[in-house]
C-alpha cells in the first residue's frame, strides 16, 4: 500500500509541477512574440493585418507547448496508463 500511495503522491506532484514549469516558458515566449509584434505594428501600422495573422499562428504554436504539458498532466491525473500495473 505504501508504494501505491507514494506512486499517487508522485503523480499528483509531477502533474502540478509540470503545469507550473510548463506554463512559465511558453508564457515568456508568447510575451516576447506579442511585444515584438506590437513594436512592428507601432512602427508600421499599415502592416497590422499580416503581422497579427502571423502573430496568431505563432502564438498558437507556442501555446501548443503549454497544451502538451496540460495534456500530459491530465493523463497523469485522470488516465494514467501505469495505474493498472500499480493497482492490480
Amino acid at each position: 500500500m505504501q508504494g501505491e500511495i507514494l506512486f499517487l503522491c508522485v503523480t499528483v506532484f509531477t502533474a502540478g509541477f509540470a503545469i507550473a514549469i510548463g506554463v512559465i516558458f511558453p508564457a515568456l515566449g508568447q510575451g516576447k512574440a506579442c511585444s515584438k509584434a506590437l513594436e512592428g505594428i507601432a512602427r508600421q501600422p499599415e502592416a497590422t493585418g499580416p503581422i497579427s495573422r502571423t502573430l496568431f499562428v505563432g502564438l498558437a504554436l507556442l501555446e501548443s507547448l503549454a497544451i502538451y504539458v496540460l495534456v500530459v498532466s491530465l493523463i497523469l491525473l485522470f488516465a494514467n496508463p501505469l495505474l493498472k500495473y500499480v493497482f492490480k
Binding site: 498558437a60 501548443s64 497544451i67 502538451y68 495534456v71 491530465l74
Partner: peptide, 13 residues
C-alpha cells in the same frame, strides 16, 4: 498530433 492536441487541450481545459 499537435493540431489535434492543441484543439483538444484548449477546449477540454
Amino acid at each position: 498530433f499537435s493540431l489535434a492536441l492543441r484543439l483538444f487541450g484548449n477546449i477540454l481545459g
